[in-house]
Structure formats: structure tokens, C-alpha cells
Write a protein that binds this DNA or RNA. Structure first.
Lengths: 159, 159
DNA sequence: CTCGTTGCAAATCATTTGCAATGGA
DNA sequence: TCCATTGCAAATGATTTGCAACGAG
């Protein structure tokens, strides 16, 4: 529990540090900073894990009983555009969002859909995979390395 | 077009080679080898790309006008269990299935959801990423390296 | 003959959308 | 004030499920 408290503080601090810049960018883009968005962004950035829209919705309901799920999605999409959130799709279940936008990879449980962070340096090297998995008591079934971006045709079309 | 024909032949050959073993394994597991499944597996293994259930359904309708979409899903799930297909989820659109089950990664277009194969040796090394992307005229937005498997808790629970 | 599989339609479930009301800038 | 955003409900779209008829072993 003592560990949890310090972890929580770190996450909150990280969040508060990013709030200012984020809010500034929202305003500069003509996006309105509503109380709902403020609370949503603050809650999201404070996460050390990978919450889904539904999870955030449940969490925010306490302060905003009328908060609609569509508002949560709306804000998460905004954060994605601002580069402050990364979508992670464990399998075919709810999309999960990662407040840590640095390059890194995840161990994904195909049963409970838990996501476990791994530093990028650790996972780009094939040889280290087995040891890493064992460290986390994780039994790899398959690995997927996807690079999202724009293909030649789409880049050409939107020019 | 001449290139297409040779490509198609290679894919078909690869498929035919795997058909026998696959059918044998299905029978040994008490799975029935129906004409629908046979056609579906053959069509799937012949693919050089990453068809969705819908795509295969359209394709198979020609020979089996009554083929249900749920039958396609059913067979794809079976192939997945047999290790003959790998699920790939580009974003939040239709799941795509990859007949190439070897370790490799994909370039995923976030606009048209095209998947481009990359050999694993090429993509596990961080440094090569930029050059590889340029080779394919692909603009990377983000990369995702996910390892699917079973986490410690789930492994413990199902023991 | 048996029971796994099929086809069809209805059900699910995450996510999106339409639209009137609200309230930031 | 003006228009982006909200909340709500209905729509969407991929996937799953229930169930009677079918047919592979």
C-alpha cells in the first residue's frame, strides 16, 4: 500500500505537469476547455495503467453524475489528436488508452486483457523476449509488432 | 498482371501443401471436414494478404451462395486454434486474418487499414525502422509491439 | 444414427451519431 | 451572442448466439 501511495503521487505529478501545456494547446486550437474535459484529462493522465472509455466513465461519474459515455470518447479522441493518448486494442474487447505516449510495448493477457508495460529497449531485441516474459511470469502465445502510420497511397491522396 | 498470376500460383502451392496436414489435424480432433470448411481453408491459405471475415465471405459466396457469415467466423476461429491463422486488428475496424503464421510484423495504414508484411529480422531492430518505412513509402505514426499470452494470475487460475 | 456443423435471424456490445439544450470564449 | 460541446437516445457495424435442419463419420 505504501508503494501504491508513492506511485499515485508520481502519476498525479506527471499529470499536473502536462495539464498546463495540454490545456494551452486545446485553447490555441479553438477547443473549449469544459469542466468535464478538465476532469477527464486530469483523471486520465493520473493513470499508471491503461483505462478504457468505460472505466473512465465509471470513474468520472462520481463527480459528474450526468457525464455521458460519448463525452468520454470525445475527449479521448481529442487527447489522441493532441498526442497525449495512445490507443491499444488488446483483442476485440474495449479499446484501452495509454497515457504513456513514449515508445514502449505491452504484454497483453489474452484472458483478462491486462496490459503490462515493457520498455522499448527491452523488447525490440528478439533474444531478450523469453527472459522478459519469464520475469513477469508471463507465457507468450504470440507477439505482434505493428507500426501504425500512413502508406504511400494515402499520403499521396491527402496531399 | 503477369506478376499477379505467378504470385497467385505461389500462394496456392503454399496452401495446398498445408491443406493435408490441416485436414488431418481437424479430423484427429473430432472436427468435421465439411465442404464449406474445405473451401474456406483453401481460399484462406491461398491468400497472400490479410482478408477479413467479410472479404472471405464475399469470396466464398460464389461457390456457396448460402454460406453464412457466421460459418466464416466459425472456421477462422478454428484455424486460429489450429495455429493456421493469426488475428490482426488494424484499429477498430474489421479483424484481419493472416495465413502467414511465422514471426513477422506489419506496417498498418491508419487510413485505409492496409497491412504490409515485414520480416521479423527487419523490424526487431529499432535502428532499421526509419529506413524500412521509407522503402515502403510509409510514414510511421506510432509503433506497437504487443506480445500476446497468459499473465501470471491467469496461468495460476487455470492450473 | 449421432452429434457437430450449417444457415438464418436475432442478440450483443463497443463505439458513433443526431439533435436540442447548455455554457465557454 | 455564437458556436463548440454536452447529454441523451437511437443508430451502426462487427461479431456472437440460439436453434431447427442438415449431413459427415
Amino acid at each position: 500500500m505504501a508503494e501504491n501511495i508513492s506511485t499515485e503521487k508520481k502519476a498525479s505529478d506527471r499529470g499536473e505537469e502536462r495539464m498546463g501545456a495540454l490545456v494551452k494547446r486545446m485553447r490555441s486550437q479553438g477547443q473549449r476547455v469544459t469542466p468535464q474535459r478538465l476532469a477527464l484529462v486530469r483523471a486520465f493522465l493520473a493513470h499508471e495503467d491503461h483505462p478504457s472509455a468505460e472505466m473512465l466513465h465509471r470513474e468520472l461519474r462520481e463527480k459528474f453524475p450526468t457525464m455521458a459515455l460519448s463525452t468520454v470518447y470525445n475527449t479521448l479522441h481529442l487527447l489522441k489528436e493532441l498526442g497525449a493518448a495512445v490507443e491499444v486494442s488488446p483483442t476485440t474487447v474495449e479499446t484501452r488508452y495509454d497515457p504513456d505516449t513514449g515508445d514502449h510495448c505491452h504484454l497483453v493477457c489474452v484472458e483478462c486483457h491486462r496490459l503490462i508495460d515493457l520498455p522499448l529497449e527491452a523488447c525490440v531485441h528478439e533474444r531478450g523476449l523469453q527472459e522478459l516474459a519469464e520475469e513477469h511470469h508471463f507465457t507468450p502465445v504470440r507477439q505482434v509488432h505493428q507500426i501504425y502510420g500512413h502508406c504511400a497511397d494515402c499520403t499521396a491522396q491527402s496531399s
